Simulated scan of single mutants.
Amino acid sequence: MLPALSTEGMIALNIFEGSVTKERFFQFIDEQIAPQLTPYPGPQSVVILDNCTIHHDEELQ
């Protein structure tokens, strides 16, 4: 499961069988998170990720 939360509540959710792969995570960011982002310093302009290994990928950063 890949959830995305904001101060308003859940803004995106992807439920699937199996592991989170780089491709699946990138697709989630590209298709569900990025379209909701606004320019900084607007609302929903900052994405905070935990210390999961996939979050350190150079391509994602």
Rank of each mutant, 00 (worst) to 15 (best):
E8R: 15
L60W: 06
F25M: 13
I29Q: 07
T7S: 11
D57P: 03
T21H: 02
H56V: 15
G18E: 03
I11W: 01
P41S: 09
Q32C: 07
E17V: 13
I54W: 07
H56M: 14
Q32D: 04
G9F: 09
D57Y: 10
N51R: 15
A12P: 00
G42N: 06
T38E: 12
F28K: 01
T21C: 08
R24P: 00
I29H: 00
E17G: 11
D50S: 11
E8C: 11
Q61D: 10
V47W: 00
I11E: 01
S6L: 09
T21R: 05
L2S: 01
P43H: 10
P43A: 10
I15Y: 04
I54K: 11
I48F: 03
D57A: 15
E31M: 13
K22D: 05
Q44N: 13
P3D: 04
V20D: 00
I15M: 11
P3M: 08
H55S: 08
H56P: 02
Q36V: 05
I11H: 01
F16S: 03
L49G: 05
G9H: 06
F28L: 08
A4Y: 02
S45N: 10
C52N: 06
F26C: 10
Q61T: 12
L2N: 06
F28W: 08
I15H: 05
D57K: 10
G42S: 08
Y40T: 15
M10H: 01
T53D: 15
L13W: 06
I48E: 05
G42P: 02
S19Y: 09
P35F: 00
E31Q: 14
V20N: 04
T7D: 03
P43C: 08
Q36Y: 02
R24S: 03
P41I: 13
Q32N: 14
F28C: 05
V46S: 00
T7H: 03
G42A: 14
I48V: 15
E31I: 13
L60R: 11
H55C: 07
E8T: 07
E58F: 09
V20C: 07
L37C: 04
H55K: 09
P3T: 09
P43K: 14
Q36H: 01
I15Q: 05
G9Y: 03
A34T: 15
T38I: 12
F16T: 08
E58S: 10
I33G: 00
L2Y: 06
P43D: 05
R24C: 04
I29E: 01
Q61S: 13
P35H: 05
